[in-house]
């Protein structure tokens, strides 16, 4: 399968990239690692007239601490850098751990953090070849008005299968978005729209430029990913638990994110609240897991039974809480 024809421009600077995006607003798409975009193009899921190549662009390829102690990661930082970064290994090990669970090493060598965060939502009825899709009516995500995964469904529930998004959300990260006119910083929780057909707030002309992660202190975070193979697979469900302890072994400031069961990773505040100030025993774990289970509503849009995905939310929650607590205590 060939790629469609397009203009290809490789800007040297961020400004240049922004003005290009502005000039060809709506018709341009950025190409960073390309590990997802080129597949979408081959499948004609997108038909941009202009592709803006960012691989050679300087200025967004860093991982560094700022003066305030926050970690700033340029959107073009490769996943491989993240998994092998000493700062990240030291201060945000869960981010490194999650990164190592993305795809396979050669993909991580070129894929970027910006690309992973803005990964389009996925669905077995959508991520298919043009021929495959020609055999059915256009779904909501393709501009139609039906959903093949949920009969009579009115909303697109395509899944956010980013591995990094839930971890970064649990770490309280935000993203910097730039355009020719302006620059804005958005908390990751607000970056995702929850809409399968338009999963994030990036507007035409805007570029995801940077990820900002506040200092995590003595907290510990754990990512539990549901996948079938030991590699390659997108998550079928994901749980991130980040917490600290109050010194007596009780949980403090827990953040729990549920992901890969709907269009956006979501913090489950109710579950977090159950943990606050509590010593964790099996009963409490069961309660927390039950809340997560109730909040997870996977539908039949990935290649795995939603019954199982939902069930695993419960199991993975318990595992993540237990492990995060142990790690936090050890910290």
């Amino acid at each position: 399968m060939q790629l469609p024809r397009f203009d290809f421009i490789q800007p040297a600077t961020i400004d240049e990239a922004c003005s290009l995006l502005d000039e060809r607003k709506g018709d341009a798409t950025v190409l960073a690692g390309g590990t997802d975009l080129l597949i979408e193009l081959r499948r004609r899921l997108r038909k941009p007239g202009c592709v803006i190549g960012l691989k050679e662009m300087r200025g967004l390829d860093y991982i560094q601490k700022d003066d305030g102690g926050d970690l700033r990661i340029g959107a073009l930082a490769r996943l491989q850098w993240i998994e092998s970064s000493p700062i990240i290994a030291e201060e945000y090990p869960a981010l490194a751990q999650a990164t190592r669970l993305v795809a396979v090493p050669p993909i991580r060598r070129v894929a970027t953090i910006g690309g992973n965060l803005s990964l389009d939502t996925r669905c077995i009825y959508y991520n298919q070849s043009e021929f495959w899709r020609s055999a059915q009516a256009d779904c909501i995500k393709l501009g139609g008005d039906i959903c093949h995964a949920v009969p009579k469904g009115r909303r697109c529930l395509a899944v956010c299968q980013s591995d990094l998004a839930p971890v970064l959300m649990a770490l309280g990260a935000s993203v910097k978005i730039v355009s020719a006119e302006a620059e804005r910083t958005v908390a990751l929780a607000d970056f995702f729209t929850g809409k399968g057909e338009k999963p994030n707030v990036l507007a035409p002309g805007e570029l995801l430029a940077e990820v900002i992660i506040p200092s995590d202190g003595q907290r510990a975070a754990v990512y539990e990913k549901l996948r079938i193979r030991e590699g390659m697979d997108f998550p079928l469900a994901g749980i991130v638990v980040s917490l600290g302890t109050d010194g007596q072994g009780a949980a403090a400031g827990a953040r729990i994110v549920l992901s890969a069961v709907g269009p956006a990773p979501t913090r489950i505040v109710e579950a977090e609240g159950l943990l606050e100030g509590k010593r964790i025993d099996d009963d409490l774990l069961e309660q927390v897991a039950q809340v997560m289970f109730e909040r997870a509503h996977p539908v039949a849009n990935l290649a795995m039974d939603p019954w199982y995905r939902r069930k695993m939310v419960k199991v993975l929650t318990k595992r993540a809480v237990r492990q995060a607590l142990e790690t936090a205590k050890a910290n």
Binding site: I124, N127, R229, A303
Partner: peptide
């Protein structure tokens, strides 16, 4: 009657790690 996983991303071909 559509085959949902006629590709190596979604068809679970065992990897060296499996």
């Amino acid at each position: 009657g559509q085959n949902i996983n006629a590709n190596f991303t979604d068809y679970w071909f065992p990897l060296a790690t499996d």
